[in-house]
Design a protein around this nucleic acid. Structure first.
Length: 290
DNA sequence: AGCAGCGTCCGGCCGC
DNA sequence: TGCGGCCGGACGCTG
């Protein structure tokens, strides 16, 4: 389940291996081609598979960066600039290999959906077990407005103020804090794992509404989120479910998680509880979090 | 107009 | 062991 730290790990590993290489051919799995023929928007969004294959050909990757949970590939061809955006969904993964057989794990090798063949013969391979990921070839961010609506990066100096300002608006003031943290327009890149951890670290119940948290506590909560995201980046992310970085490696943050996925509270030993907030399962300790 | 709730993309896994 | 139901990022649509 890649969130900001996991995507950061992918980008750091992918960038040096992808920058300055040029795409010669693109291939798409029969599964995706069939789904697209049935009118579905499977992985390759907003474009036909034929156009995608044609339009990606000859593109040189000039940069690879992260924005929220999206990977941004800056592309250039004949002096024209494009933006290729990849979101890993639940189970997406990129591999830099010379052959599909170099992908060691069966489940990833079995679900390869997009192959970018480079001029030098190497491959950038996108695999996605559950096909919840998405990729878009754009002329710029503005071509896909949701990208413009994303909150600032949590590490940006404006991010705290953005969070506090939106928390005070009528639209959000009565919402549960966990739904707020996981809303990408309020805080970027924080999904269920890190929202759960930050709330546990702060002793805040996930269903507590924003208006019942003081300004000081909200600021402390934001700082806790940033601290936990940074801690996870340093640990190489959490390898829960099917996350792997570009080298097929797992991170170690999952060993440091104190609440997510736990049946018993590490602080007080009581059984953890869970409830649905914004349609997502939220685990918490009813004694340590109020 | 604005928003809550649901549908869409799916395979894996759980429990019966 | 077979199989129905649940899970989940994030957008778009509906009522």
């Amino acid at each position: 389940m890649p969130e900001l730290p996991e995507v950061e790990g992918v980008v750091r590993a992918l960038a040096p291996k992808a920058i300055a290489r040029t795409i010669s051919e693109v291939s798409i799995s029969d599964t995706v081609i069939l789904s697209k023929q049935l009118g579905k928007e499977t992985i390759v969004k907003g474009i036909t598979t034929e156009d995608f294959i044609e339009d990606m050909r000859g593109m040189t990757i000039t940069n690879v960066t992260r924005r929220s949970k999206y990977i941004y590939f800056d592309l250039e061809r004949n002096g024209d600039k494009f933006l290729f955006v990849s979101h890993l969904g639940m189970t997406g993964a990129w591999f830099v290999v010379n052959s599909i057989n170099d992908i060691v794990e069966n489940k990833f090798r079995k679900h390869v959906h997009v192959i970018l063949k480079m001029m030098d013969g190497g491959l950038l391979v996108y695999s996605d077990i559950r096909r919840f990921g998405e990729m878009r070839l754009l002329s710029s961010e503005a071509e896909y407005p949701p990208l413009l609506r994303m909150a600032p990066e949590p590490f940006n100096k404006h991010a705290l103020n953005h969070f506090l300002t939106l928390c005070a608006t009528p639209k959000y003031i009565n919402k549960p804090i966990k739904a707020i943290i996981m809303d990408g327009q309020i805080i970027s890149g924080c999904g269920n794992i890190y929202a759960t951890e930050a709330l546990f670290a702060m002793g805040i119940h996930p269903a507590r509404t924003v208006k019942r948290i003081s300004l000081k506590r909200k600021e402390e909560l934001f700082n806790a989120i940033v601290r936990i995201l940074n801690e996870s980046i340093e640990a190489g992310g959490s390898s829960i479910s099917d996350y792997r970085n570009i080298n097929g490696e797992a991170g170690s943050m999952q060993d440091k998680l104190k609440m997510y996925g736990r049946k018993v509270c590490v602080e007080c030993g009581r059984d953890t509880r869970s409830l649905q907030i914004g349609g997502r399962t939220s685990v918490y300790c009813s004694s340590c979090q109020r």
